[in-house]
C-alpha cells in the first residue's frame, strides 16, 4: 500500500513518462500483480492505485532489457545468484505480458 502511494506520488511529481519501475519480486504471480498495479491499476482494488491506470514502464530485474542496460559486474554481484534461483522465464513472461498490454510509454 505504502509502495503504491509512493509510485503514484513519484509519477505525479516527475511525469509518468519519466518513471520506470524495476521490480524484484521472487514469484511470477506476485511480479505480474505488481506490474499490473503500476500499469493498469491495482487489481485488488485495495490501494491508492485502485482504478488508476498509470501505464508506467515496468521491468523485472531479471529481464534482459534491464540486464543489458547495467554494468555486468554489478549485475553479477547483486543479481547473479538470484538469477539461478528464480524461475526467470515465467517472471519475464508475466511482467512482459502486463507491460505490453498496459504500458503507455
Amino acid at each position: 500500500m505504502e509502495n503504491q502511494k509512493r509510485v503514484k506520488e513519484l509519477a505525479e511529481k516527475y511525469g509518468a513518462e519519466n518513471v520506470i519501475v524495476v521490480l524484484g519480486g521472487a514469484e511470477a504471480e506476485a511480479a505480474g500483480l505488481a506490474a499490473e498495479t503500476v500499469t493498469a491499476g491495482d487489481p485488488t482494488y485495495a490501494g491508492p492505485l485502485a482504478g488508476v491506470s498509470l501505464g508506467l514502464k515496468v521491468y523485472h530485474a531479471v529481464e534482459p532489457e534491464f540486464k543489458e542496460s547495467v554494468d555486468p559486474e554489478v549485475y553479477d554481484e547483486q543479481i547473479g545468484m538470484m538469477e539461478m534461483v528464480l524461475d526467470v522465464d515465467s517472471i519475464v513472461e508475466e511482467v512482459k505480458n502486463m507491460r505490453e498490454q498496459y504500458s503507455k510509454y
Binding site: 514469484e27 504471480e29 547473479g80 539461478m84
Partner: peptide
C-alpha cells in the same frame, strides 16, 4: 498465501551461492 516454500527458497539461495 503466495509466499512460496520459504525454507526451500533459502536453500536454493545457499546452493546458488555455492555454485558461484
Amino acid at each position: 498465501a503466495g509466499a512460496g516454500d520459504v525454507p526451500n527458497a533459502n536453500y536454493k539461495m545457499i546452493a546458488a551461492l555455492g555454485v558461484k
